[in-house]
Amino acid sequence: MIPVALLSTPAIVLIVVLVVLVAALAFLTFWGNKQQKKAETAQQQIEAAAQPMTMLVIDKKKMKLTESGLPKIVIDSTPKLYRRSKVPIVKAKIGPRIMTLIADEKVYDLIPVRQEVKAMVSGMYILSVKSLRGPALTAPPKVGFFQRMKNKISGK
């Protein structure tokens, strides 16, 4: 061990910074593993409660949670940080009722508008979608920023 008196001030600062960084990394690893386990258990509960439904999709949009038309209880139970974030909202007719549902990000692009689909729904959350009639559902290809600008310039 080197006596502290022999170390220079920059070396002491460097050691302190390294110790703080290692402690922060250890904390983030522990906290991240804990959050990942929570997410996995929540996903398992959602999948266990899922049930198939046939629905006619009326409209789909990405909108703020507060403007989505979801029940007040859902909005109040959401953390304030996430209320202003945009979520994929789907309005669909399920049986005689028109309902507002939240779609999974992976499924949102697959949902066709004004078509009947068979979906796995857990509460108000759409987990997966299959085509009821016609061809299988495929997501439209993503158009990049530069391609959009080219299309705008060329008038397409």
Rank of each mutant, 00 (worst) to 15 (best):
36 Q>H: 13
1 M>K: 04
17 V>C: 03
83 R>A: 06
102 I>A: 08
3 P>C: 11
31 W>L: 00
64 K>E: 14
52 P>K: 04
55 M>F: 07
64 K>Q: 15
22 V>T: 11
147 Q>W: 01
15 I>V: 01
7 L>V: 10
24 A>C: 12
68 S>M: 03
4 V>L: 13
103 A>E: 12
34 K>E: 10
48 A>C: 07
6 L>S: 13
14 L>D: 15
105 E>L: 12
132 L>N: 00
56 L>R: 14
44 Q>E: 11
143 V>I: 15
101 L>D: 02
3 P>G: 10
70 L>P: 04
44 Q>D: 09
8 S>A: 12
79 P>C: 02
129 V>A: 01
33 N>C: 13
4 V>W: 06
94 I>G: 03
82 Y>I: 09
138 T>M: 11
75 I>H: 04
122 S>T: 05
156 K>R: 15
94 I>A: 07
6 L>D: 11
148 R>D: 14
131 S>E: 04
45 Q>L: 07
107 V>F: 02
132 L>M: 00
28 L>C: 07
7 L>A: 12
98 I>S: 08
18 L>K: 05
119 A>S: 07
71 P>Q: 03
103 A>G: 14
91 K>L: 05
82 Y>P: 04
49 A>P: 03
50 A>K: 14
35 Q>F: 08
54 T>C: 01
90 V>K: 05
30 F>I: 13
67 E>F: 13
74 V>P: 00
80 K>R: 11
70 L>E: 05
111 I>G: 01
36 Q>C: 09
71 P>I: 02
135 P>C: 03
127 L>V: 04
30 F>W: 13
154 S>R: 11
31 W>F: 04
59 D>S: 06
11 A>W: 10
41 T>G: 00
133 R>P: 04
59 D>K: 06
10 P>N: 04
8 S>Q: 12
2 I>N: 07
81 L>I: 07
15 I>S: 00
19 V>S: 10
2 I>V: 10
77 S>M: 11
143 V>T: 15
113 V>M: 07
94 I>L: 10
2 I>M: 06
47 E>K: 12
12 I>T: 00
136 A>C: 10
109 D>H: 03
92 A>Y: 03
114 R>A: 03
5 A>V: 06
76 D>H: 05
57 V>K: 02
21 L>A: 14
85 S>R: 01
123 G>K: 03
61 K>M: 08
18 L>N: 06
51 Q>T: 14
104 D>F: 03
17 V>H: 01
130 K>D: 14
134 G>L: 03
2 I>C: 03
98 I>K: 09
145 F>D: 02
20 V>K: 02
29 T>A: 15
137 L>I: 01
101 L>H: 01
25 L>C: 09
137 L>P: 01
31 W>A: 08
72 K>T: 07
64 K>S: 15
116 E>D: 05
125 Y>M: 09
47 E>F: 08
123 G>W: 02
80 K>F: 10
152 K>C: 05
33 N>H: 15
8 S>G: 13
21 L>K: 08
40 E>I: 08
124 M>Q: 05
